[in-house]
Amino acid sequence: MVSFPNAKVNLGLNITEKRSDGYHNIESVFYPIAWADMLEVVKSEEQHFQTTGLPIPGDAANNLIIKAFDLLKNEGLMPDAHVNIHLHKILPMGAGIGGGSADGAFMLKLLNEVFELNLSITQLQGYASQLGSDCSFFIENKPMYCFGRGNEFETVNLDLSKKTWVLVNPQIHISTAEAYASIKPQKPEVSIKEIIAQPINTWKDTLVNDFEIGLKDKYPKILEIKDKLYGLGAIYASMTGSGSTVFGIFDKELEGLSEMFSGCICWQGKGI
Rank of each mutant, 00 (worst) to 15 (best):
A34W: 09
I33K: 00
F4H: 15
I225T: 02
F115P: 12
A128H: 02
I174D: 04
V2M: 09
V83P: 04
D205H: 07
T164A: 06
I195T: 04
Q47C: 10
P188Y: 00
Y127A: 03
G241E: 03
G126H: 06
N6V: 04
F49L: 10
G256C: 08
W203S: 07
F49Y: 15
R149I: 13
S44Y: 07
I213G: 07
Q198A: 14
K142C: 07
A7K: 02
Y145D: 00
L13P: 04
N25S: 10
N25C: 10
H82A: 15
N209T: 10
G98R: 00
T176F: 05
D70I: 15
R149T: 10
G126C: 09
P170T: 09
K162M: 10
L64I: 07
G94P: 08
I172S: 04
L119Y: 01
Q47S: 15
D103H: 13
G94D: 13
P143W: 06
C264D: 06
K8I: 02
N141G: 05
D59G: 14
C266A: 12
I235T: 13
A36Y: 05
D37V: 01
G243N: 05
V9Y: 03
A61L: 14
Q47M: 15
S20V: 05
I222N: 05
K162Q: 14
D80F: 14
N151E: 09
K8Q: 03
H88A: 08
I192R: 00
I139T: 00
L87I: 09
